[in-house]
Design a protein around this nucleic acid. Structure first.
Lengths: 230, 230
DNA sequence: ATTACTATCTCACGAGTAC
DNA sequence: TGTACTCGTGAGATAGTAA
C-alpha cells in the first residue's frame, strides 16, 4: 500500500531518529550515508527524492542542508509502521493440525494407564487421562512437518520409568484443544505409529464429549507462546 | 542494521498477515504477487530468497507451496518493527527556536496592554501578560522557516477588535518555554517586525525571571501535539 | 492450473568529479 | 569542507515460457 519507496524507509527512519520531525536538523549526506549503510551519493539522492515526493523539506544554507519531515512523511511512516504492527499481531499463537480420527489400537491406552505415567499426568496435567488415546491421521504433509517442529516449543515433560522388567520412554505433552475440547497432544519417545499420526489424551472421553467417531474430521490447536516483539 | 532485504519486507509482512507464523499456509505466488503489488515471478523469487536466507520454510505439495515463517524470520521482522517504532517515538513533540534577545521597541508592549487584548489573554491564556514583549532575533533560516510552519499547529486565537478609531489584528498564541520559563509565542496579524523576529509574552518579566538581557542567547520551545501513530 | 527458468529492462547504487 | 551531477554496473523487476 505505501507509496513510499522501500529503499527510503531506513533513510526516513534515520531522519526521525535524528529528531527531524518538528525541527530542521542539519545533516550531512555523508553521515546520513553511513547511518543507512549506503554511499554519500545514495543518501543525497534519497533526500532529493524524499523531497520531490513531499516527505521531507530541505533548507539549504550555503553548502549545508537542514531537513525536516513533513506531515505527509510522518503519515507515510506511520502507515508502514502499522502495516508491520498488524502483520505481527495477527499471528495467532497456535499450531494447528487437521486430520481424521482413526481407531486406536488400544496399545496407547494400555501404556498411558500405567501408574508410572498416571502419577505424573495427575501432577503435571492436573488429571489422570481417560483410558484410551485419540488417534488422528494427519491430512497433509504440512501438518506432519508442523508436528516435527513442535519440538521447538516448550512442552510438559513426563519422564520415562522402569518397572523392573522393562523401561518406558518419556512423553511430551502439549496442552491442546480438539474441536474446542481440552486435551493434550502427546509425543512418545517410543511409538509404534508413523509420523502422520498424532495421539491425544484428555480428562474425559473426547470422542463422546466432542461427538466424534472414527472417520470424523478434527482440528487440533496447540497453543504456543508468541515471542514478544520487543 | 537488518539484513533482511528491504524489498522482502512487505512480502514477509503479507505472510504474517496470512497467518504463516506458526502454521504452514498454502499460498499461490500469483495471489502473493497481487498482495505485494508485484508480478507472480517477483513473488516466487521473493519466496525462494526468503527461504535461502532462512526466514521462511517452504513445503511443496505437487505444484502448490505452503509457507511458514521461521523464528529467524519473526526475529528479523520484529527487529525492523522496533527500529521503526523507536524512530517514530524519538520525535520530540516540540518546535524549537534559537536566537538572541533584542531590545523591544516598546510598541508591542503598548498594543498588548490594550483592554481588547488583555481581556482575552486573561481568559484564554489564564493571565494578563507582563507589559512588554520579549523580542528574539532568530539565528538561522531554519528557525524562520519553522516559524512560518507554526501555522500548521493549533494555536490559541486572540481575535482582533476595534476601538472606534481603528482596528487591531488578531494574535495567535503558542504556549512556549523560554529557557525553561513559561511564556507564549505570539504571532501578530499586523506586525512591524520582519520574519526573523519572534515575540513572546508571559505572566512575569521573562528577562528577569530567566536572567536574560539584550544579546542573550535563548532557546524557545513550542510544544506541538504529536500525531498518534495509529 | 501451478512454479520458476531465461532474457530483457529499469533503476538504485557507487565512483569520479564539478561546483 | 560541503552537495549533487554523469556514467557504468548490477540487482530487482517483468515477460515469455518450460515443466
Amino acid at each position: 500500500m505505501p507509496e513510499l519507496k522501500l529503499q527510503h524507509i531506513l533513510t526516513l527512519a534515520e531522519l526521525f531518529a535524528k529528531g527531524a520531525r518538528y525541527n530542521y536538523i542539519p545533516i550531512t549526506t555523508s553521515s546520513l550515508g553511513q547511518s543507512i549503510h549506503k554511499s554519500q551519493q545514495a543518501a543525497s539522492k534519497h533526500l532529493l527524492e524524499l523531497e520531490a515526493d513531499g516527505y521531507i523539506e530541505r533548507l539549504r544554507t550555503g553548502p549545508k542542508v537542514s531537513i525536516r519531515i513533513t506531515t505527509k512523511g510522518h503519515a507515510e511512516m506511520s502507515k508502514i509502521f502499522s502495516v508491520l504492527k498488524s502483520s505481527l499481531e495477527t499471528s495467532l499463537p497456535y499450531v494447528e493440525f487437521r486430520g481424521t480420527i482413526i481407531s486406536g489400537m488400544g496399545e496407547g491406552a494400555y501404556y498411558m494407564s500405567m501408574k508410572g505415567y498416571t502419577k505424573q499426568f495427575k501432577s503435571k496435567l492436573g488429571y489422570v487421562p481417560f483410558p484410551g488415546t485419540l488417534n488422528v491421521k494427519l491430512k497433509d504433509k504440512e501438518f506432519i512437518e508442523a508436528k516435527r517442529s513442535l519440538d521447538a516449543h516448550p512442552a510438559i515433560m513426563v519422564t520415562g520409568f522402569s518397572d523392573g522388567k522393562r523401561t518406558y520412554g518419556w512423553v511430551k505433552c502439549y496442552p491442546a484443544r480438539v474441536n474446542n475440547v481440552d486435551a493434550a497432544l502427546i509425543l512418545l519417545e517410543r511409538t509404534h505409529h508413523d509420523d502422520s499420526i498424532i495421539e491425544l489424551v484428555s480428562k474425559e472421553n473426547i470422542k463422546k464429549l466432542a461427538k466424534l467417531s472414527t472417520g470424523s474430521q478434527v482440528t487440533i490447536r496447540v497453543n504456543v507462546k508468541p515471542k514478544l516483539s520487543q
